[in-house]
Every structure is written in structure tokens, then in C-alpha cells.
Amino acid sequence: MRTHSARLAIAAMMVLGAQTVQAQSSPADPCAGSTGGACTTAALAQPIELARPTPLRTSAYIAQIGDANTASITQNSTRQFARIGQDGDNNSAKATQNGAGSAYLEIDQAGLLNTFVSNQSAQDGGGNIAVVAQQGESNIILLDQSASAGSVNTAMLAQQGSGNQMQLGQNGSDNRAELVQLGDNNAMTATQNGSANQLRWVQNGSGLSDLQIVQSGNQAMSITQSNGGT
């Protein structure tokens, strides 16, 4: 079984190793007005893919090591899967899956005072896949996914460091997202609406500003923001 650090490293490499080509369309430069370090934008090299097996039946797994950790999973369908693994103290994870169809969620947290909250709501057509790896101290990830019938939302989130905040909301059809945040006291907020959106956003450093990206329609985007830290 892979450790929390190994899962986080794999998630980071999946994003950092991506190449870039021409975008499907040309969104406004989200780095305009950025402060504190380099910020580059480009398009995605290829569609983001995160394949996971379809659950044969509803399953929920929680494993915790440490003191004062809390975890909860709420499921309301017949073919949903959720797994929470926490290692450390005072970590909190809450997963809600809702709706008919399939949702797949993996959560790994290691460290102190980390928080993860998700609300997935796939309907009859199925959808919603999320993989989360968070390591460090006082990091927060908030994830809200909802899919209409026949559509698929995909997200992969990874944070490593202290005092980082990440929030992703996906709504609509075939939205994809990969977010990786490395360092301390960084913030990321991304909202995707409509259909066929794709986002890859990497922040590496400390004290990086929140670009607060909003996408709608058939967009493709790749963003890297970094500095030397403080």
C-alpha cells in the first residue's frame, strides 16, 4: 500500500509533468495583476483523465491513526465508493456523495489540523470522481461537485505545506480539474460551469495570491504560479 507521501508525490507529478499546446479557446489571462512571483499560462496538452473502477456496490472505508481525528461518509445510492485515510492528529474529513449513479472518492490526509469537506451529487447518469492527498498542517480543501445525467466531473487535488486553502466547485458536464499546491499560506479558488471545461493549476511557493479562476463553456487552461517562498 502506498504511503500518504507517495500518493501526494504521484498526484504532483501527474500535474507538473504535463506539456502544453494551443487552447480550445482563449480565456482571459488569469495571471493578469498577479503579485509575488512568476505566473505562466498555456493550454492543456491533452484531456485530463482519471480512470477509476466502477463500484459494484456501495462501499465506505475509514482508517485513522493518531489522536482526535474525525471522519464521516454519507452515501445515498447503491453503487458509490468512498475511502478516507488519516494519519496524524486533529485532522477532519467529511464526505457526502448523494444521488443515484456512481461517485468515487479517495481522501488521504497526513499531519495536523488538516480539513477536507466534499459534497458530490451525481444523478442517474453517474459521474463525479475525486482523489485528494493533503499533507502538512492547517490545510483546508473544500470540494463541491454536481453532475447532470450522463455527465462526468473529475478532480484531483493535492496540498503540501502549512496554512494552504483550496476550493473547487464543478457544475455541469465533463468538467476536469487538477490542482496542486506546494508551500505555505497559499490560496486557490476555481469554479467551473457549463460543459467540457478543463483546468490544470499549479502553485509552488509561499504566500501566493488566489487567482480566483472562473470558467464557463468549452475552455482549456493550464496555469503555473511560483515564487521562492518566504
Results as ranks from 00 to 15, higher is better:
M188P: 01
L208H: 05
I141Y: 08
A110V: 02
I129F: 04
G125S: 06
P30E: 02
Q97C: 05
L8P: 04
A32V: 14
G126Y: 03
A28G: 10
V180D: 05
Q203M: 09
Q46D: 13
Q145D: 01
T96F: 08
N91A: 01
N128P: 01
N119R: 12
A68C: 00
V117H: 10
D29G: 06
A18Y: 00
D89P: 06
L179Y: 02
T58R: 10
D29V: 09
L208W: 00
I107Y: 13
V132Q: 09
V132I: 15
D87R: 13
G205T: 12
A12W: 06
A110Y: 01
A158I: 07
L211F: 03
D124T: 14
Q135E: 14
I129P: 00
L105N: 10
L50N: 13
Q198R: 12
A18S: 13
S102P: 00
L182Q: 14
Q97E: 02
C39V: 12
D108A: 14
Q120L: 14
D174I: 02
N186K: 07
A28C: 00
Q203R: 10
G194C: 08
D89V: 09
L8K: 07
L8A: 15
T35N: 10
L211S: 07
N218C: 00
I107D: 06
S102H: 09
I141R: 11
G126D: 02
L157T: 01
W201G: 03
R83C: 02
G205Y: 03
P47N: 09
S92G: 01
Q86H: 03
P53G: 10
Q215S: 02
Q134Y: 01
L168W: 04
G111E: 02
I213M: 10
R57L: 13
N164V: 11
A18H: 08
A95T: 14
G36A: 15
G66V: 05
S226A: 12
T35Q: 15
Q203I: 02
A60T: 12
R176S: 14
P27F: 04
A177T: 03
R176E: 01
G217P: 06
I73R: 08
L112D: 09
R79Q: 14
T54Y: 08
A32Y: 04
D210K: 10
D144H: 08
F81I: 01
G37F: 04
L105R: 10
L168E: 00
V152E: 12
D87C: 00
A158N: 11
S148Q: 13
Q135H: 05
G33C: 08
E137Q: 13
S148Y: 09
Q120C: 06
I84C: 09
I48K: 07
